[in-house]
Amino acid sequence: CRRWPGATFREDPAVLRDWVQIAFGLQRDGTDKAPMYLIGAPFQIKVWEALLAIPSGHVTTYSEIAQTIGTPKAVRAVGTAVGRNPISWLIPCHRALRKSGGLGGYHWGLPVKRAMLAFESARVDA
């Protein structure tokens, strides 16, 4: 509401169905994409696109993301862009770790990040 004060908001679970099914691996028709319209600086969008390319159950590092988007020295900027991700489960910022393997930060707390990573890992291992 703060970002779009003139907008009319309405609850419509059907609109989110594809996103939720993809996020939880429940798509039955073989598709793995849901439409997303992101607002961010071009650099942020590149980072978010790189996050979208990380398969469920896998992780990467902030420095690997920086390499992927062609800015290998912009590791801190990548971390900032990851942290500004507006829709965390759909753009999987929880899959970004420190080079040391540490979890780094997470807007909703490290217990949530651990749980999300464990959930995805268990699904891949099953």
Rank of each mutant, 00 (worst) to 15 (best):
F9V: 09
E11N: 12
P13A: 11
P13H: 10
A14Y: 01
R17I: 06
D18R: 15
Q21M: 15
I22N: 08
I22H: 08
I22Y: 02
I22V: 15
A23L: 08
F24P: 00
F24I: 04
R28C: 01
R28T: 09
D29Y: 12
G30P: 02
D32P: 02
D32G: 15
K33L: 09
K33R: 14
P35G: 10
M36V: 15
L38S: 02
I39D: 05
A41L: 10
A41R: 13
P42R: 10
F43Y: 10
F43T: 01
Q44P: 02
Q44H: 10
I45Q: 00
I45Y: 08
K46W: 00
V47Q: 00
V47Y: 00
W48V: 05
A50D: 06
L51A: 05
L52H: 02
L52N: 12
L52D: 13
I54G: 03
P55T: 08
P55I: 06
S56G: 10
G57L: 02
H58L: 08
T60W: 02
T60H: 06
T61V: 10
Y62Q: 04
S63G: 09
S63F: 09
S63E: 06
S63R: 06
E64N: 14
E64I: 09
E64V: 11
A66L: 05
Q67Y: 09
Q67A: 07
I69C: 01
I69G: 03
G70P: 03
P72T: 12
P72C: 04
P72R: 01
K73S: 12
A74T: 04
V75K: 09
V75I: 15
R76D: 11
R76V: 13
A77N: 11
G79H: 07
T80Q: 14
A81I: 04
A81Q: 04
V82Y: 04
G83P: 08
R84H: 13
R84A: 06
N85K: 00
P86T: 08
I87D: 15
I87M: 14
I87Y: 13
W89F: 14
L90Q: 12
L90W: 07
L90R: 06
L90K: 02
P92F: 01
P92G: 08
H94R: 07
H94I: 05
R95N: 05
A96T: 00
R98F: 01
S100L: 03
S100G: 01
S100Y: 12
G101F: 09
G101M: 13
G101S: 13
G102N: 14
G102A: 15
G104T: 10
G104A: 04
Y106D: 01
H107Y: 13
H107A: 12
G109C: 05
L110P: 06
L110T: 12
P111Y: 06
V112I: 15
V112H: 12
V112M: 14
R114Q: 14
R114W: 02
R114H: 02
